[in-house]
Computed example of a mutant assay.
Amino acid sequence: MLYQSKIAGLGYYVPENVVTNDDLSKKMETNDEWITERTGIKERRHIKKGDGNSTAIMGVKAAKIALERAGIDKDEIDLIVFATLSPDYYFPGCGVQVQEMLDIKTCPALDVRNQCSGFIYGLSVADQFIKTGMYKNVLLIGSENHSGGLDMTTRGRSVSVIFGDGAGAAVLTRSDHNGQGILSTHLHSEGKHALELSLKGPSTMHWVPEIIEENPQEDIPYYPYMNGQYVFKNAVQRFSEVIMEGLQENGLEVSDIDMLIPHQANLRISQFIQQKFKLNDDQVFNNIQKYGNTTAASIPIALTEAWEQGKIKEGDHVVLAAFGSGFTWASAVINW
Rank of each mutant, 00 (worst) to 15 (best):
242 V>W: 11
49 K>M: 11
127 D>I: 08
105 K>G: 04
93 G>Q: 06
256 D>Y: 02
161 V>S: 07
196 E>F: 15
128 Q>Y: 11
224 P>V: 11
167 A>E: 02
333 V>A: 08
246 G>F: 10
141 I>E: 09
20 T>Y: 09
53 N>D: 11
210 E>V: 07
24 L>M: 13
318 V>M: 01
48 K>E: 10
71 G>Y: 08
47 I>Y: 03
245 E>T: 12
237 Q>D: 10
286 N>A: 04
67 L>Q: 08
287 N>L: 14
125 V>P: 06
156 G>C: 02
76 E>P: 05
91 F>N: 05
166 G>L: 02
182 I>S: 08
9 G>Y: 03
267 L>D: 13
188 H>F: 10
164 G>D: 01
201 G>C: 02
43 E>S: 13
20 T>Q: 05
166 G>R: 03
79 L>D: 03
164 G>S: 00
21 N>T: 08
226 M>Q: 13
237 Q>S: 15
94 C>G: 09
62 A>L: 14
99 Q>M: 08
68 E>Y: 06
216 P>F: 03
182 I>L: 08
90 Y>N: 15
133 G>Q: 07
297 A>N: 05
201 G>E: 06
120 I>N: 02
70 A>W: 07
52 G>N: 01
15 P>K: 06
129 F>E: 06
244 M>V: 15
137 N>A: 06
185 T>V: 07
228 G>A: 14
201 G>S: 02
246 G>H: 14
77 I>Y: 05
194 A>C: 15
252 L>G: 00
299 I>S: 02
307 W>S: 14
238 R>P: 13
124 S>W: 09
39 T>R: 02
301 I>R: 04
286 N>V: 09
202 P>A: 03
4 Q>E: 15
331 S>R: 09
118 G>R: 04
282 D>S: 14
202 P>Y: 09
91 F>M: 13
16 E>A: 13
270 S>I: 11
120 I>R: 04
13 Y>W: 13
286 N>W: 15
295 T>H: 03
323 F>A: 00
263 H>D: 01
306 A>S: 07
169 A>E: 04
